[in-house]
């Protein structure tokens, strides 16, 4: 064994021997080894995770003691044995999913997962919220903030809490990039698009197409923002066409040297 491997921690996940560095999150180790753990509020796009849906719980056994942990944010510190599908986990995950299904009754994703994990029977006394599909994971807000846009946030609190723009008005800050809709695990964030425009968070954006090949480049605001950040002029052709033009030019030059 090489020096490197010796420093690694051995983790037995569902009977499979895996190795990781100290401090790595359990979910990441499992995923790298093709072991499936369900997640909702975790996205590869971010390093810090919301850790609020609790779907990713697993059982960890260290020195004979076992505990249930949230795998997406559980850093591995020492050798341990992990069960992602033990009876206890199956049972608890089913409860978590049943609760989420009552929180977001309109979401097919959540409903499907809940069904697959044991159904929502036994929870009849809970009234589903009229809350659509949102599980309030906050990934959309995180995505928007991480891009420096900050157009949406959670508003109100308790049972009334939801994600929205300030005063539910079309946001001046929004650039129509769809990051929020793309990262949302439940499909709560809706947008409309036709050939000319895209509408999201009640605001309409003009779509821009590549002058060369006609590919969709995004909204006017997206291109302007990107251009302003890199200090270049707003592009008129898409990346692919720009590269092609550059390559053509280069070929041209070289042909004559």
């Amino acid at each position: 064994m090489s020096e490197l491997v010796k420093e690694q921690i051995k983790v037995l996940i569902d009977g499979k021997e895996c190795y990781c560095e100290k401090g790595e999150y359990l979910y990441d180790v499992a995923k790298r080894n093709d072991i499936f753990i369900p997640v909702l509020c975790r996205s590869d796009a971010f390093e810090d995770h919301r850790a609020c849906c609790r779907v990713c719980i697993v059982e960890v056994e260290t020195r004979g003691k076992s505990k249930v942990v949230t795998s997406c944010v559980y850093p591995i510190e020492e050798e341990c044995t992990v069960y992602t599908q033990s009876e206890k986990i199956k049972e608890e995950r089913a409860v978590v999913m049943a609760l989420l299904a009552h929180r977001a009754p309109d979401s097919d994703v959540i409903g499907g997962m809940a069904e697959g994990m044991g159904g929502t029977e036994g929870f009849a006394r809970l009234t589903p919220l009229e809350a659509g599909k949102c599980i309030l994971c906050g990934l959309c807000v995180q995505a928007c903030d991480s891009l420096g846009t900050g157009a949406i946030s959670t508003v109100l609190r308790g049972t009334e809490k939801r994600v929205d723009t300030p005063y539910s008005n079309p946001s001046k800050a929004c650039i129509g990039c769809l990051s929020c809709a793309n990262v949302c695990p439940t499909g709560e964030i809706v947008f409309e698009e036709n050939e000319k425009t895209r509408t999201i968070w009640k605001r309409e954006f003009e779509l821009v197409y590549c002058e060369e090949c006609g590919a969709l480049m995004g909204t006017k605001e997206m291109l302007e923002r990107a251009a302003a950040e890199t200090g270049v002029e707003t592009p008129k052709v898409c990346d692919a066409c720009r590269k092609k033009a550059m390559a053509d030019e280069m070929m041209h030059t070289y042909r004559f040297v």
Binding site: C144, A151, I152, V155, L156, P166, S171, A173
Partner: peptide, 22 residues
């Protein structure tokens, strides 16, 4: 007030709105 404060602090108004409603 929220708009001016957001400008002064250099933060999105959405963040202030979240606090104001919380």
């Amino acid at each position: 007030g929220l708009e001016m404060l957001a400008e002064h602090l250099g933060c999105p108004i959405a963040q202030l709105f979240a606090m104001a409603t919380f």
